[in-house]
Every structure is written in C-alpha cells, then in structure tokens.
C-alpha cells in the first residue's frame, strides 16, 4: 500500500504532481566483469524474485520502438488497482456524502441566513463586473461537468450502470471522457483568469484573523468587518486555486501520458488527481451551498453582479468605504430602478 501513502503525503505537502521520471535503470547484473569470457552464463542467470526485491520492477530491452514495451513487469499495477478500487471510492464517498450531510444538517439547524430589514436600502452597488462574472461562470460550468464526468469514472459503474445498462453507460462514459478531456481546457483558462483578477483581493490580512475569531458571524450575531472578500471567501479562493492548479497539472500529465513520467508516475498522478478531485468537489459543494441556498441575496453578487448597498455595508463594510473613496461621486448607482430583493 505504499502507493497510497505517497499519494497522501503528496497531498499533505500540497506539492504538484510528483513528476517521477524514473528512467529505466538497468538491472544490476549478477556478475558483470569487464570480460565475460570464462563465465558460466547458464548459472549466472537473473532470477525474478531477486530482481523484484532489488528493483521492484523489471526493465529490459526490446527491439521495437515502443519503449514502454521494455517494462516486463511492474507489480505496482496491483497496488494502484487496490487504491483505485478499494480506497478511492471510500475517500470520495465519505468526502462528498460527508459534506452533503454537513450542509444538510446546517441547513436544518441554522437555517437560511435571512436578509434583515436594515439590509434592504433598495440601492444597488456593483459587486462583480461582467467579465468577473463571465470568468466565474466559465470555470463553474466546466467544473460541474468535469466533476460529474470525473465521478463517473469512480462511481459510474457502481451506481449508474446498473440503472441504465452497460451499453448506454458505455456511450455515456465515452461522451463523459470526451467532455472531461476537452472541457478541462476552458476550466483551466477560467481558473487562470480568476487567479489573475482576484488574487490581489484575496491576500489574507489582520481583518481576516478577527473575522475567523468571531466565527464569521455565525457564532455571535455581530458582523465582523471585511474587505471585498472575507476570510471564508479567501479560503475558498485559495482552495480553488491550489486545488485547480493541482488538478490541471495532474490532468495535463494524464492527458499526455508518458510524456513526462513512466508508468508509476502515471499511477501516482492519477491517484493525486482523483483524491484532490473528490476533496475539491466537496469543497465546492459548500461554496455552492453558501452562495445560493445558505445566504439570502448572495447569489445576486454573481447573478446580476449588484448587491444591496446596506447588505454590502453590513457584510463588506471596509470594501464599501474603499469604493466610496475611489468614486468621489458616491456609490455606483445603476439606474434608479429599485430592484426588489428576491
């Protein structure tokens, strides 16, 4: 099970997919002297058990151009299978169901965070411009499809195939694979844009520390002050960025197999991609919850891009002041149409 340990270690370190370019080292010959003359080749034969103990895989020479064929035996294939069919479904299941239960539980205990009257001044302030919303939704849409098709690799044959039957499931999976491979590119693009545009607003600072100490307002009822993004939002930003980059790196490595690493590297890359993937999905579930059901009015920020000025002053006071300072003519007002809060 050493493969899993490496996978978890890599996760902990948050290091990118460990690109293990294990070049095929020649097998240490039993008795290689300068001149083999006088030796007994029959008795000097290599033995499989001894080689596997020393090198844990058997690399040789073949006369055909496909270098991969020179790998005679790699027992790690069984270990990777043990991880992918044994551990991974559990990790995924616990992470995703766990998060869903947590959100479900939270919803039925704390309920939806309502807008109180003081936060409906009828005046709107621009939270996210069109481009920011576009890049968010580009990434989000792709993420949803990637998540579903990704999970299909793990849970499809366990949950979906019995329902729709192998033929339809195979066709679906084929489409799922294409979708996963090709939508990954817009996802990566969106990820990059989000990183570039929002990174300056997501640098953690003292205000965030205070925000966290107050439990983000969940514990007490006081609203801790926050800039454009409060600590929670900064956390999800960094989860998306780091997780996204890891997923992209391992994804690209898997999309161009053996271009940078050998088969054990590919196994590890897939393991990292899968584990981070399920955790990433879990995290995003929380994000989706809080951005839609969890807090009233939060969706507008990314839906229309405008939020109520009072709501903004309550939740992102320092950000509002910044905005006011920046625009001497007062808050950005778009048309005088008062928009009823949904």
């Amino acid at each position: 099970m050493h493969l899993l340990r490496i996978a978890l270690a890599a996760l902990m370190l948050g290091g990118g997919a460990a690109v293990l370019a294990q070049t095929g080292r020649d097998v240490p010959p039993a008795a290689s002297t300068a001149n083999p003359s006088g030796q007994n080749p029959t008795a000097a034969s290599v033995r499989e058990d001894q080689l596997l103990r020393e090198l844990n895989k058997l690399q040789g020479r073949v006369s055909i151009p496909d270098g991969k064929a020179a790998l005679l035996e790699q027992p790690q294939g069984r270990e990777w299978r043990q991880f992918r069919e044994g551990w991974l479904p559990w990790i995924g299941g616990i992470a995703i169901l766990g998060m869903l239960l947590a959100l479900f539980g939270f919803y039925f205990t704390k309920g939806r965070i309502r807008l109180d009257q003081t936060e409906e001044s009828g005046v709107k302030i621009l939270r996210f411009n069109a481009f920011e919303r576009f890049m968010h939704w580009l990434t989000a849409v792709c993420f949803i499809v990637l998540a579903l098709t990704g999970l299909n690799y793990i849970f499809g044959k366990r949950l979906l195939m019995p329902i729709i039957g192998p033929d339809a499931f195979a066709a679906l999976s084929q489409w799922g694979k294409y979708a996963h491979n090709y939508l990954a590119w817009p996802f990566m693009l969106g990820l990059l844009l989000m990183l570039i545009v929002w990174v300056k607003d997501n640098i953690p600072n003292r205000v965030d520390v205070a925000w966290i100490r107050k439990g983000g307002g969940f514990l007490g009822d006081a609203h801790p002050s926050a800039y454009r993004f409060n600590a929670g939002q900064k956390m999800i930003f960094w989860i998306v960025v780091i997780g996204g980059l890891l997923m992209s790196a391992t994804g690209i490595l898997m999309l161009f197999p053996f271009s940078a690493t050998d088969i054990n590297g590919m196994q590890l890359t897939q393991a990292v991609h899968a584990v981070i993937g399920v955790l990433f999905i879990a995290a995003i579930l929380a994000h989706i919850y809080i951005g839609s059901l969890g807090m009233e009015g939060a969706y507008d920020a990314m839906g229309s891009g405008e939020v109520d000025l009072a709501w903004a002053r309550r939740h992102h006071d320092l950000w509002v002041e910044e905005q006011r300072a920046k625009t001497a003519s007062g808050p950005q007002v778009h048309g005088a149409r008062p928009v009823p809060a949904e």
């Binding site: 020649d26 097998v27 010959p29 039993a30 008795a31 290689s32 083999p36 030796q39 007994n40 080749p41 000097a44 034969s45 290599v46 080689l51 058997l58 690399q59 040789g60 020479r61 073949v62 055909i64 064929a69 020179a70 790998l71 005679l72």
Partner: peptide, 11 residues
C-alpha cells in the same frame, strides 16, 4: 513482445 533483461551480460 520479447523483453531481454541484462542484455549483453552473462546473466
């Protein structure tokens, strides 16, 4: 395919 281990050496 045929893979040769320790190609060229007595073993």
């Amino acid at each position: 395919r045929v893979v040769t281990l320790n190609d060229g050496k007595p073993s």
